[in-house]
Write a protein that binds this DNA or RNA. Sequence first.
DNA 1: ACATCGGGTTCGATCATTGAACCTGTCGTC
DNA 2: GACGACAGGTTCAATGATCGAACCCGATGT
Lengths: 170, 170
Amino acid sequence: MLGKDYENQDCALARALEVVGERWTLLIVRDAFYGVRRFNDFQAHLDIPKAVLSDRLAGLVDEDILERRPDPQHAGRHLYELTPVGRDLWPVINALLAWGGRHRHTNSRLFRHATCGTRLDDAGRCPQCGVTPAPGDIVTERRRGRGRGRRDPVSVALREPHRLLEPLET
Amino acid sequence: MLGKDYENQDCALARALEVVGERWTLLIVRDAFYGVRRFNDFQAHLDIPKAVLSDRLAGLVDEDILERRPDPQHAGRHLYELTPVGRDLWPVINALLAWGGRHRHTNSRLFRHATCGTRLDDAGRCPQCGVTPAPGDIVTERRRGRGRGRRDPVSVALREPHRLLEPLET
DNA sequence: ACATCGGGTTCGATCATTGAACCTGTCGTC
DNA sequence: GACGACAGGTTCAATGATCGAACCCGATGT
């Protein structure tokens, strides 16, 4: 991805940024957590040029963050899904969401612990249970009182409360 | 910084990435946590083109993440220091460091709670005290058993154990 | 008075990103 | 079984970002 650009930084941060530090990459990973799996759905939701999306998806597959597999329902199509390494990026996404929500722009979504319904704090912990739920145990819903926002079918489908990683139905 | 590029994403993540999602930006912020404050020290440690460093520092000042103030010891020079908003980025840096350390490249540093000396876990919590220390209460030191690494004066100075945010002496 | 150092800016060459156009393989429909 | 529509790409020229080298300027040091 960023190639050898940060090569002489002996630092895990530089290694991480070589993988997820490019433009668009973390937004693609965010959508994957929200349940997006198909090329066109990523494209509709992100307004990203197809050539760049194609390049980023291939890079994420190379880096073992997404897995590309045939869509069992549609021959010739593919699904992109987070691998365990990719799912392990949730704390990164969550930290950026929390910072952005505190200092730039109130977060348009909120996150609850699926098993008890309590809202998670900024660190991603459930104050009720004292645990930090894995993404599959987190329900996301749209915060009320916001404008209608985007009208593309993917955005509309994502407005329904659902668990992270749960495949989006369109 | 990234301007209006992610403008139609109604999402705190997009807002955050507009600020810290550009190339080099998070490495600059990391160095600021480690205690780097001067233009030349950033440049020596990062091998970044001066024009890009100048652009990024100005952007971070614009975005209220760094503060630029005159160096009291050297007329005409400046110091770049993290603002409270910038210091609030620590969980983001920590999450990326932890992910990179788990999946790419063992982290070359480790972090301890300054008040008790216990190593922090990947979420940045002190397992002994049950708190998540603020950056100023974290001591970083170099992990043993690594090659000598970079030999520039900034890298050498950073090898000494010290608190985050503590100004680097060169 | 002169050289040096920190902290930049300017500049041409290179590299990445963009949006539009084009291509290919499946599918549903007539 | 021909036809068009659609998912999922690739190619291309134009634009914008990044690079490294060179230059500039004000404050010290000698």
